[in-house]
Computed example of a mutant assay.
Amino acid sequence: MHDLGTQFFVDLESQVWDALASGDADADRELLSDDFVGVYPTGFANRGDHAGEVADGPSVAKYAITDARLIDVSADAVMLCYRADYQRPAHSAVDVMFISSLWVRRQGRWWNTFSQDTPAAS
C-alpha cells in the first residue's frame, strides 16, 4: 500500500481541476508530464491538447471529486480512480464522469501521466 494515501492524490488531481476552473494553462501543464496521454470520448490528447482546453478561458465552472480509490501500481506510480461531478461555464447541467488518472513519481516529483475519462450513463 502506498504511504501517501488517497487524499494526497485527490489533492494533486484537484490542482488539475483548479487549473481548468481558473483557465490557467500554465498551471495545468505544470502538473502533466511531457509524455501525458489522455483518453477521452473524443479521442486521444497530449499535454498541449489538455492545456489547450483553457485557451479561451475556464473550461469548468465547478467540480466535486467523490468516491476516490487508489490502486498501487508500484512504489512510484498510483492509479487514482474517482467520480467527478462538474459544470461547464454558462451551463446549468451537472455532468458526471468516472476518471482514472495515473500519477508517476519521477525525479522526486509526482506527474499526471495518463487520464481516462468515461462519461456516466444517463
Rank of each mutant, 00 (worst) to 15 (best):
G43H: 00
A21H: 00
P41R: 04
Y40L: 12
F36C: 01
A61V: 04
Y40I: 09
S33T: 11
H50R: 15
A68Q: 05
A21N: 01
D34N: 15
L70C: 09
Y40W: 15
Y40D: 09
A21I: 02
L32Q: 14
L70T: 07
E53L: 13
D56N: 13
F44L: 15
Y40N: 12
V54D: 00
L20F: 14
G43Q: 00
G23V: 01
V37T: 15
D28W: 07
A64D: 06
A45P: 06
G48C: 11
D18H: 14
A64E: 07
R69A: 13
I65Y: 04
A19W: 02
D35T: 11
H50K: 11
A27P: 04
G23S: 00
I71Q: 08
L31D: 11
V54S: 01
H50D: 15
R47A: 11
Y63H: 12
A19C: 02
L31P: 03
I71S: 05
G57T: 07
L70M: 10
V37Q: 14
G48V: 08
A61L: 12
D34L: 14
A55E: 10
D28Y: 12
H50C: 13
A55C: 05
D28S: 13
S22C: 06
P58R: 01
G23P: 02
A61I: 06
L20S: 09
A55K: 14
D67L: 07
E30K: 13
T42N: 13
G23H: 01
A45M: 10
G23T: 02
S22Q: 07
F36W: 05
N46D: 07
A68F: 03
T66S: 11
P58S: 01
G43S: 02
T66F: 09
G38H: 04
K62F: 05
V60P: 01
Y63Q: 07
A51E: 03
V60I: 11
A27T: 04
Y40E: 10
V39Q: 10
L20D: 08
R29D: 08
P58V: 01
V54G: 02
T66I: 10
R29A: 13
S59W: 05
R47K: 15
A51F: 06
S59G: 11
A55N: 10
A55P: 05
D26Q: 13
K62E: 14
L70G: 08
D67S: 09
D34V: 13
G23M: 03
Y40V: 08
A19M: 02
S59R: 10
D26W: 08
G57L: 09
V37G: 08
P41M: 04
D49I: 00
R29V: 07
V37P: 08
A68N: 05
R47G: 04
S22T: 14
D18L: 14
A55H: 09
Y63I: 07
L31V: 15
T66H: 08
R69K: 14
E53P: 02
A45I: 08
A51D: 01
D24H: 12
A61W: 09
V60K: 06
D49S: 00
L31N: 12
A45C: 12
R47F: 09
D26F: 10
